[in-house]
């Protein structure tokens, strides 16, 4: 799946990487490379194997097959050294609920062996990063879900990592906090930090990721930049048609024919993929197809996913 020869600047390199839990194969021989300085994404539905893959990269879960190198080191033998150079934002927050917000930074930083003087400076910056300066001395428990998420993300940066792994970082954040986090992630990228993120949000993947892989049932189904993937698998424009009755949708489908390049049938709507939305609209009118609502939009990674797997991401 990886194009071309081994990239010299690959910070993470997986070949046939596999994770099995008993008989169940959660990650089924995946190949990928994450290059220095890029934002790399794992996109896929629930249970695709994103978290399992992230846990192998962060050296908290041993692989059961294949090869993996992280920061040019081997997770099987150099776990502590690798972990000292990465930041991990797990899917579920695991803040230290017995400690205050401030001590969460300091104590976590001490696990990396950093001196207190350095930590006090960084903690102050990261408090601002997480916009929690006024909650500095509060316990973690009473923070809101979004605040905890921001604290978890900020805490992962305490060791000034070269590589940051973010497993669904924006789940639970309000739209404003989400956009702010995107800004912060761009900031990290500008400083040369390599980021790996998983997400269900298509807009997030399109905004943030330089390259991404689409995962489904433990396999990588395709790989590329968001733009490449869209170009490769779908047309630039999509028309969504909704009908009052399933029977009407049925009828429209059988007569739509050549109006679009490809038609996807979902439970509640038809998706018409086209290079020329105007022409498709005219063709629909000629066939007197009259949907309840009609929405024309640009194709997204959601459409790529549908084309690749035959399923939508929400399913």
């Amino acid at each position: 799946m990886v194009d071309g020869p081994l990239h010299p600047d690959a910070l993470v390199r997986a070949r046939g990487l596999t994770k099995a839990f008993g008989d169940f194969v959660a990650v089924d021989g995946v190949d990928f490379e994450v290059r220095r300085g890029e934002v790399f994404g794992f996109l896929g539905p629930n249970g695709a194997g994103k978290t399992s893959t992230m846990r192998m990269i962060s050296c908290v879960s041993p692989s059961t097959g294949g090869e993996l190198s992280v920061l040019h080191l081997d997770p099987r033998t150099d776990g502590p050294a690798i972990r000292s150079r990465i930041g991990v934002v797990p899917q579920e927050d695991n803040l230290d609920t017995e400690l205050s917000v401030w001590d969460n930074f300091i104590v976590y930083g001490r696990y990396f062996g950093l001196p207190r003087r350095v930590l006090r400076e960084r903690a102050q910056e990261l408090l601002e990063f997480a916009r929690l300066t006024d909650r500095r001395d509060d316990r973690v428990d009473p923070l809101s879900g979004g605040m905890k998420r921001r604290l978890t993300i900020a805490r992962a940066l305490i060791n000034d990592p070269d590589l940051v792994l973010l497993d669904e970082p924006t789940t639970g954040l309000d739209p404003q906090a989400r956009h702010l986090l995107w800004d912060r992630l761009y900031g990290l990228k500008r400083r040369g930090v390599t980021l790996i993120i998983t997400t269900h949000y298509m807009d997030e993947a399109e905004q943030l990721c330089d390259r991404l892989v689409v995962m489904d049932q433990g396999r990588i189904v395709d790989e590329g930049s968001p733009r490449e993937l869209i170009h490769r698998h779908v047309t630039p424009e999509v028309i969504e048609l909704r009908f009052a009755e399933p029977a009407e949708q049925e009828a429209a489908l059988s007569s739509a024919g050549e109006a679009a390049e490809r038609i996807e049938v979902l439970a509640d709507r038809l998706l018409l993929y086209t290079r020329d939305a105007e022409a498709t609209h005219r063709a629909l009118a000629e066939r007197s197809i009259e949907p309840l609502t009609e929405l024309t939009r640009r194709a997204s990674l959601e459409d790529v996913f549908l084309a690749l797997t035959g399923r939508t991401l929400e399913e």
Partner: peptide, 14 residues
């Protein structure tokens, strides 16, 4: 419950 050691095992500690 607190998942304290999950967090700690993501750092250099074993």
């Amino acid at each position: 419950y607190a998942k304290l050691y999950d967090a700690i095992l993501a750092t250099p500690l074993e």
